[in-house]
């Protein structure tokens, strides 16, 4: 007999037991391991995708930050350039003003110096003219001119004799002369003074070359004099006044 009933039943039971055993020790663990591996791979892929997305997001963020930084730098550079331009303009303006001020001061100084130089020059010219005139008159003076000077002096003293008479009382009269007086001039001078100032003490004549072409009378604290130098000084003063009046009108 090829088939045995007990063996058939036993093999069915054995097969069912084997199904349970293999399901318990083979299929479940293997499938579980495979599913866990697939889950791990899926998780790893998911994490990789997330990491890639994060990397892309970070890349985009970095790109945006880079662009923002570039814009900020551009703005800062533009502001800095504008500030530098403004500062340069202001500095140039200040420098121009300083230069103009310095130039103005320099021009004023130059003008003042030039004016001063011109003033000195005019003054020296005037003085030199006066001195030349004085020297010319002194060089050309002679007895006639001296006598004429003495005459003019006498007239001046005569005009002031009333004013001088009172201080001359009991006072010494001193006549200082810058011109040489001869005996006749001396005698005439003494006579006139004695006549005009009878109460005066003796008359003393002194040579006084510093007076130049001039002569003066000193009674106490009073003086009467004629001197070419006074005229020349008046002339110089008038010349100076006219010169500087001309300068003031021009400036």
């Amino acid at each position: 007999m090829l088939i045995d009933g007990f063996t058939v039943v036993a093999q069915i039971v054995n097969f069912l037991i084997l199904i349970w055993l293999l399901n318990r020790f083979l299929f479940k663990p293997i499938r579980g391991a495979m599913e866990r591996r697939e889950q791990k791979m899926a998780d790893a892929l998911h994490r990789a995708e997330q990491a890639e997305q994060q990397a892309q997001a970070s890349s985009l963020a970095l790109e945006r930050e880079k662009t923002a930084f570039a814009e900020a730098r551009e703005n800062l550079m533009a502001d800095a350039r504008e500030e530098v331009d403004q500062w340069r303009e202001a500095a140039m303006e200040r420098t121009r003003e300083e230069v103009a001020s310095l130039r103005q001061a320099w021009m004023t100084s130059i003008s003042r110096e030039r004016q001063a130089f011109l003033d000195r020059l005019k003054r020296q010219v005037a003085r030199q003219v006066v001195r030349i005139g004085e020297k010319t008159l002194r060089d050309l003076s002679d007895q006639g001119l001296n006598r004429q000077v003495l005459r003019v002096f006498m007239e001046k003293v005569s005009d002031q004799k009333d004013a001088l008479n009172h201080p001359a009382a009991n006072q010494e009269i001193v006549v200082q002369s810058g011109i040489p007086l001869d005996d006749e001039d001396d005698r005439m001078l003494r006579e006139r003074l004695s006549t005009w100032f009878p109460t005066a003490a003796p008359i003393r004549l002194e040579a006084h070359p510093q007076l130049g072409l001039g002569i003066q009378l000193v009674v106490g604290d009073r003086t009467a004099a004629w001197n070419l130098l006074d005229y020349l000084q008046d002339l110089e003063a008038e010349i100076m006044e006219s010169l500087f009046d001309h300068v003031r009108v021009n400036s």
């Binding site: 054995n14 020790f25 083979l26």
Partner: peptide
């Protein structure tokens, strides 16, 4: 049959103890 069952079960158990995922 028992021998095959033991072989399959024991082999599966031995491998299933140290399954790597």
């Amino acid at each position: 049959t028992w021998a095959v069952m033991v072989l399959l079960s024991a082999g599966s158990w031995l491998v299933g103890r140290r399954l790597q995922t």
